[in-house]
Simulated scan of single mutants.
Amino acid sequence: MKARVKWLDGMAFVAEADSGHGIVLDGSPEIGGRNLGARPMEMVLMGLGGCTAIDVMMILGKQRQPVQDCWIELQAERAEVAAPKVFTKIHLHYVVVGEGVEAKQVERAVKLSADKYCSVSAMLKEKVEITYDFEVRSATGSETGA
């Protein structure tokens, strides 16, 4: 796997992956950025969310769970030191929507992703405290979860 990050101007860069997909990265205005794109640490957090979301949806699909919608809300805390301001804690809250989706199956999918399949999580959990919970919502609004 390869990627290329090329400077545009100021603190803005274009990052392109082997797949040919690209994104704009930029720093905050406080360091000279113009807010043209996501910050690199935001990309790490979104990468974690994307990796585990794919895992969970694949597992729930194999379990034939009738998922209508799914999202993950991630919240991270960073070190208080001057630099590097690494993540110290990340919490993931999974929300799965669907009539008849079983909470037990969602719990299993989330746990398998966290413990076995998510590559990003596997890299981060050596240094970051990662916690998670989930809820299952029906399209009519009732909830279950852990």
Rank of each mutant, 00 (worst) to 15 (best):
A76R: 11
S19H: 02
Q75T: 15
G141A: 09
V56E: 00
H93D: 03
R34E: 05
E73C: 11
P66W: 09
K85H: 06
A103H: 04
I23H: 00
K6E: 14
R64G: 09
M46Q: 04
V97S: 03
Y117G: 08
V95W: 14
C118Q: 08
G22Y: 06
S121Y: 13
W7R: 12
D9I: 01
E16M: 13
K125H: 13
A38W: 07
S119T: 06
S113Y: 05
E16P: 07
L25M: 04
G10E: 00
V14E: 10
M58V: 10
A139N: 14
T131V: 10
G145C: 07
R4D: 11
K85E: 01
A103Y: 10
S119M: 03
V106K: 09
I130D: 07
E129L: 14
G27W: 01
R39H: 02
K2V: 13
T88S: 04
I23L: 08
G10P: 06
V86L: 15
D18L: 11
A83D: 08
V5D: 05
L48M: 08
S121E: 01
I54D: 03
Q65H: 02
A146R: 15
R137N: 05
K62C: 08
K127E: 14
E143Y: 08
C51N: 03
K104T: 12
A139M: 12
Y117R: 06
A109I: 03
S19F: 09
F13K: 00
A38R: 04
A109S: 01
K127S: 15
A17G: 07
W71M: 05
M11E: 10
D26Y: 03
V56G: 04
Y132R: 06
I72M: 07
D55I: 11
I54Q: 09
K111A: 13
E102Y: 12
Y132V: 01
S113D: 02
M123H: 07
E99A: 10
D26H: 05
L60S: 03
V110E: 01
K85A: 04
R4E: 15
L124Q: 01
Q68F: 13
Y94S: 04
W7K: 09
C70F: 15
E42W: 02
K89Q: 09
V97M: 03
S19E: 07
P29H: 01
A76V: 14
A122W: 13
L48A: 08
M58P: 08
V5H: 09
R34Y: 06
S121C: 06
E135R: 11
Q105H: 14
T144A: 12
E77L: 14
E80V: 08
D55H: 05
K62L: 09
M57V: 11
V81P: 08
G10C: 00
A109H: 00
G47I: 03
R39N: 03
Y132S: 13
E129K: 14
G145R: 12
T52V: 13
G61M: 06
L45E: 02
V56Q: 04
K62F: 03
L36Q: 09
E77N: 12
A12D: 00
G100C: 01
D133I: 11
R137F: 02
